[in-house]
Each structure stands twice: as structure tokens, then as C-alpha cells.
Amino acid sequence: MSAPVDRQRPRVGRAFWAVLYRDLYVTSKELPTFLAQVILQPLFLLFVFGRILTDLGYAQEGYAELLFPGLVGLTAVVTGLQSSAFPLVIDFAYTKEIEDRLLAPMPTALVAVEKIVYAALRALVASALMLPIGVLILGSIPWRPGAAPLFILMVILGSLVGSAMGLLMGTSVPANRINIVFSLVFTPLLFTGASQYPWPSLDGMRWFQVITTLNPLTYVSEGMRAALVPEVPHMPPVLCVGMLVFAITVIGWAGMRGFRRRALD
């Protein structure tokens, strides 16, 4: 007996878009949840640090200006990280929902790339929302003509580096330990990323300054400040971009390896 076999090359690009569309479609169905998720954290951070502390006089005049760029960077990185790490852990450990997509006619690594792209898109939306939230809470946000290109580049790089970190975490941590690992990683990540203070101002605290260079968020925060408040001392933007591209490549590569290891027995 014989039968015809379809030997057309599978359409990998279409499979990729379909997998990405699946995530976007699911997100669109739960839009309020998504918005609450991405807005709440930056909203409180801005309100407490940018508004309450300065209004009460505990923080200097102008601290909000300095803080805002850092918080946009923080939002990009943290949202990216959360958006890729958590769903992956649950998927691989319990629901196995992702299996049907792993059997789509596309390389396994591309499914991992899709996870990064989707998480980065969420992070982009969250970061963009920081602008109106900032205006709302602070009254005005630091902005200057010509800030846009570097600002946008930093938002994109920050989102990508966060998503890549999430992919690495989500695929290298067993489900029963994700809570521990997350709290062990999250808090240091939050406070060693130069979001709440400019990096050059740490000159007098050398050991801490060195530690902050290990956190990719530092380069996002500094790049953001270079874009929005260039009068505040900051790292050279070229250095920030270079370090971030390097971090995205290395962490993304490691995350993809982890993904393949989890996806294939």
C-alpha cells in the first residue's frame, strides 16, 4: 500500500506567528487582569517614593525627576521577567499546555524566542503606561526634546533583558523551588539596579557600586536617565547599550538552552 506524503517545507514563520498570536489572544481575553498586573507595582512605587516621600520632605526636591527614569527601567525589566518566568514554570511542571506548541512544525528554540518576544511586548506596554501614570501622580514627568530615540531603545532593551532573564529562571528552576528562588533573586534585583539612585553617586561606596554592575537593570536605569535627565551624572549611553546587548545575548542563549532541555526529554 502507498499513500502520498506532503513534502512541502513546513511554514515555520506561520507557526511562529500563530504561537505568538495565541498568547496575545489569551491576553486580550483577560485585559483587565493584565492591566492591573502591570500597573499596580509602578503605581505604588511612584506614589510612595515620588510623591509621599518628597511631599513629606523626607526626600529632596527633584528626587522624583531622578526616580522616574529608574522606575520606567525597573518596570520594563521586572514585567519582562515575570511575564516569561512564571507561565513557563507552571507549564513545564504541571499543565503541559505548551506541548501542543512544541509539536508545531517549528524549531524548539523558536518557541523559546516567542516566549521572549511575548514577555517583552507585555513589558513594553507596562513601560509605556508609566508615562501617563507619571503625569497623573507626579504632575509632570522629566522629558526633553530629542529624548525619544534613546528612551525607546532603552525600553526595548530593558524589556528584552528582563524577558531573557525570565526565560532562564523559568527553565532552570524546578517548580517546587520557584518561590524561594524568586524571592532570593527578586529583592536584590530590585535594589541593586540603580533605579532609586544614580550609579555615579555610589563613588563613595565602591563595593556596592561594583555589585550593581552585575545587575542588567543598572544599565537600563542609567540609560533611561541619560535619555530623560541628562543633567544628572550617568553612565555613557553607549556603554549601557553595549552591556545590555551583551547581557541579552548571553542570558538569552542560556535561557534557550534551558528551554530546549526542559522541552525535550
Binding site: 500500500m1 502507498s2 499513500a3 502520498p4 506524503v5 506532503d6 513534502r7 512541502q8
Partner: peptide
């Protein structure tokens, strides 16, 4: 019906 080029296979 399946679109695309056909190759006959036994296995």
C-alpha cells in the same frame, strides 16, 4: 486532499 508536492512512500 493535501496540497503540495507528492512523494510516494511505503513506510
Amino acid at each position: 486532499y493535501r496540497p503540495g508536492a507528492y512523494v510516494v512512500t511505503e513506510r
